[in-house]
């Protein structure tokens, strides 16, 4: 499989605080990778750096063989990277349809307002309502749909289940399975370890800004993952 994303020696800082420390990782086309780790492990910052929303202090981000480290976020969207940000971040006064259509940036592909609404049928009835009036699950569906509108080659999902009822999370993941089934490359941050191991082919665990464990989801021992997650056993 060809390499789609390559991150090397990435350092991200907020002032004096170092959120990501020398992270390197690779994602091949068609893979689904789960990024796990405790709060503050640097997962969100890593995703934001890949999407271009955070300018790294050092290191490189290479996407489809070209260096995009200094590229602004909106240009990365045109190249095929889309991030569903933590907290959904919809445009509250725009309607569902406007939220989707405003994000249709250039790239052609299978996703448009009609196909997104097919995958998230619960949005059909809400189509002309302002995003601010939607429920949490509906908003999350719009956020994912909005990211799909750019027909991304790499979809980054940051805690899509946060603050949602378990039933709703199930529905969101069922729709995501459709998306993944289409052959998209996905990197997702997920707090729920069981779910992460189920949906992802590969798991990367971060602790205090570093990658501490990496492996095929099927081959990883759950206890091993848990101890890496909490930093109980440092890798040599």
């Amino acid at each position: 499989m060809s390499l789609l994303l390559e991150v090397s020696g990435l350092d991200c800082r907020y002032g004096l605080l170092q959120a990501v420390r020398g992270v390197s990782l690779e994602v091949a086309a068609g893979e689904t990778v789960a990024l796990i780790g405790a709060n503050g492990a640097g997962k969100t910052t890593l995703l934001r750096a890949v999407a271009g929303a955070h300018r790294p202090h050092a290191g490189r981000v290479i996407f489809d063989r070209s260096d995009i480290t200094r590229m602004p976020a909106h240009e990365r969207v045109a190249r095929g990277i889309a991030l569903v940000p933590e907290g959904r971040r919809l445009f509250p006064s725009l309607t569902v349809e406007e939220n989707l259509r405003v994000a249709a940036a250039g790239r052609r592909g299978r996703w448009n307002v009609r196909t997104v609404l097919e995958v998230f049928p619960l949005l059909q009835a809400r189509r002309h309502m302002p995003a601010a009036t939607l429920s949490g699950g509906e908003q999350q569906a719009v956020a994912i749909g909005r990211a799909l509108m750019s027909n991304p080659r790499l979809l980054l999902l940051d805690e899509v289940s946060l603050g949602l009822a378990p039933v709703v999370v199930d529905a969101v993941y069922r729709s995501l399975a459709d998306v993944i089934g289409e052959g998209a490359t996905v990197v997702l941050v997920e707090q729920d370890l069981t779910r992460a191991l189920k949906v992802a082919g590969r798991v990367i665990c971060m602790l205090e800004g570093r990658v501490v464990l990496e492996g095929e989801a099927a081959s990883l021992d759950r206890d091993h993952v848990v101890s890496a997650y909490f930093g109980l056993r440092r890798p040599a």
Binding site: G52, A53, P72, E75, P85, R89, F91, L94, A105
Partner: peptide, 25 residues
Amino acid sequence: TRVGWMMRATAEDADAAELVGIDSR
């Protein structure tokens, strides 16, 4: 208009607008 929506989207959340491909500059 879509350009109008882009303006409103940027006004409401410039960071998120960039992430959906809108050139906020």
